Simulated scan of single mutants.
Amino acid sequence: MKTELKSVAEAVRSYGGVLRKQPIKEIFEKLSLTHQYGTQLPNYGDDAAVIPWKDGFLLLAADGMMTGLLANEPYAAGKAAIMVTVNDIYSMGGRPVGLVNVLASGDNEQRSLIIDGIQKGCRKLQVPMLGGHLHPDAPVQHPSLSVAILGWAKNVLRGHLAEAGDDLVLVVDIRGQAGCHSVVSWDANSGKSSEELLHRLDALPLIAERGLALAAKDVSNAGILGTASIMMENSGKGAEIDISAIPKPKSLDLKDWLLCFQSFGFILAVKPEQSMEVLSIFSERNIAAKVIGHIHSEPVVTVKQGGESETLFDFRKDEITGISV
């Protein structure tokens, strides 16, 4: 009989949000050859590019919305485009400066809903949309939206700097509800004020500026375990993750929760002696933050529950993004 842990591990390994990362390796290998022309820091799967600038760092990121979400829920897609790019900047220890977009939509109603969603997202997260480009003749079945964001950080959190001996910390806001219908997601933004959302997000640059962590990643469409595993892959490390330690809302079953996209979710690697301070920063903001595992040098991610253990990824033979230090 298949146990819950084995079922979860199989679901994560076969999840579309994880499998869709596989083409990244070829693109990364080709385009990273152009890095010789810039002054940016090396990128091993970060949520944003890092460019030294004056007494800090410029952060540059971009996201594209899935076609199905745009076609089925255009207003929600517009909001999500702002949320995901803003989260990318905060996950790196930065704060947003501004956004630009490229929108393709040939249907007036669809385009209006997307723009209304973008406007709502910008107002909610208090970041300006500074410009962009429009293709007004795309078929209604095939809209597209990409958003780029510029941010700035005094100190940065990187996706590849997890070290053996670190605690693996999960940060999520379980005060929310199921999100978009087109993707498995958790909406912890609706019903909260701009001040509350920004206070919550500002915990990340605060942690970076205090030197309490070096590594962090935004929980992407790979889900909680997928994102934690990508951090391990990028860092050339492994981890043992305790499923029972993961904070979870009562309204979702375990498998759905572990796979869903988070409107506010981050994975951090933290020295054990600094974990309590990091957890308290989030606790003060009414955010669930827990040590869910420990990082080790062997590049294998295992999940455990009770006395049972299951290998999730063995990066000596497995790849998600194929990017590692």
Rank of each mutant, 00 (worst) to 15 (best):
V12W: 08
L41W: 00
A213N: 02
L70T: 04
S112P: 01
E209T: 08
S280D: 15
S229F: 04
P272R: 11
I118T: 01
D202R: 11
L60S: 12
G132H: 00
L145S: 09
D88F: 04
L225K: 11
E196L: 05
E308N: 09
V270G: 08
V183P: 01
S283G: 11
L99P: 00
F313E: 05
M66G: 08
T39K: 12
Y37F: 13
M129T: 00
G265N: 03
R20L: 07
E195V: 09
G238V: 09
E29D: 15
E4G: 03
A81K: 00
R111K: 14
K248M: 15
F315Y: 14
I115A: 04
L145H: 06
T311G: 03
L170G: 07
D256N: 14
G306W: 13
E308T: 14
A62Q: 13
S251T: 11
M83G: 01
A222W: 07
S193H: 04
A228P: 12
H296P: 01
G223P: 02
V270W: 02
H160Q: 11
I243C: 05
F57G: 07
M276A: 13
A245T: 10
A213M: 08
D137N: 10
Q262Y: 02
I149Q: 00
I292K: 05
H35G: 10
M66T: 12
E195G: 07
A77C: 01
A216G: 06
G223C: 10
L70R: 01
H294Y: 09
Q40T: 08
K317P: 00
V184K: 08
M232G: 02
G117Q: 01
L206G: 09
A104G: 15
K237P: 02
S112E: 10
R210D: 06
S309Y: 05
S182H: 08
K6P: 00
E310M: 06
